[in-house]
């Protein structure tokens, strides 16, 4: 197994005055190139903190993140993030939102015309080219998330980080977008790390599922391989034995061994 992205002994402690909270403890994870890995856990277990550490938006207290054997500790386009609430800039059009990243990343390597073509290429990938001149307030939630994905893809990230990307969408739109992400992963072969709290989503999309224990001091409880062949078809999987077994394993982990205890 070649380590493309490596999380090396990551601890995260939040300190506020005299009170310290240990959020993450001893997180070790190696991700291969082209792999699709999901991190699942109950809310408050530090999944998003972990993603922020990988993205470089938050620093780890100890330990570090290695990408292609080099430590990364500040944010950058090589680890583009698709945020939960799309985070499109409302004063820019769909096209300009994608262009913002493209202009920065390819300032030296692509000409103006090439950058324009590259933006349109990525909007086409997520089927949003028709809305290039619309503002975020004029398109639906699912469309915004598509544009968010296009913005991230257009930066040609080494790792694509998805922070509960479909959490705010209705079930039908979510399914549709999951299919799109699967197709993109198939086509482009990106390395993807996704945070989710949806068991079906995790099993459907991932090669491996990382299950986190409850915080404080959340650890990686278990890593499950999903040995399903790609391309995967949602309808066929509904009766597939391996799919059901994987689903069962994740459910057991989340609801029996690490049941979410309401904070008293």
């Amino acid at each position: 197994m070649t380590a493309y992205l490596k999380l090396d002994h990551i601890d995260k402690v939040f300190t506020r005055g005299a009170a310290t909270t240990e959020v993450l403890k001893e997180i070790n994870l190696t991700i291969e190139k082209g792999e699709y890995v999901s991190i699942i856990g109950h809310s408050g277990c530090g999944k998003s903190t972990l993603l922020n550490i990988i993205a470089g938006l938050t620093g780890a207290t100890t330990g570090g993140v290695l990408l292609e054997n080099r430590e990364v500790n500040s944010p950058g386009p090589d680890r583009a993030v698709v945020f939960q609430n799309h985070s499109l800039l409302p004063w820019l059009t769909v096209y300009e939102n994608v262009r913002l990243g493209v202009d920065k990343v390819f300032a030296r390597t692509k000409s103006r015309a090439e950058r324009d073509a590259w933006v349109m290429h990525n909007l086409n990938l997520v089927q949003m080219a028709h809305a290039r001149d619309k503002r975020p307030s004029e398109i639906s939630g699912g469309m915004k998330q598509r544009v968010g994905i296009a913005r991230a893809l257009a930066m040609e990230p080494k790792v694509l980080l998805l922070d509960e990307p479909f959490g705010a969408l209705d079930a039908l739109t979510r399914a549709h977008l999951q299919d799109s992400v699967m197709a993109l992963h198939q086509k482009l072969g990106n390395t993807i790390l996704m945070i989710t709290h949806d068991v079906d989503e995790a099993v459907l999309l991932s090669d491996r599922i990382v299950m986190m224990t409850n915080g404080p001091s959340a650890r990686i409880g278990e890593v499950l391989e999903v040995p399903l062949a790609r391309p995967r078809k949602r309808l066929e999987l509904a009766t597939n034995g391996i799919y059901l077994k994987c689903r069962q394993r994740v459910l057991e982990f989340l609801y029996e061994r690490h049941r979410f205890v309401e904070a008293a």
């Binding site: 500040s74 950058g76 583009a80």
Partner: peptide
């Protein structure tokens, strides 16, 4: 919103670009 700051950080806008954009 912190979201916009995060976007700017990921895209690596410099302070001047962050100010104007």
């Amino acid at each position: 919103p912190q979201d916009y700051r995060n976007v700017a950080a990921v895209v690596q806008l410099n302070p001047l670009e962050f100010f104007s954009k």
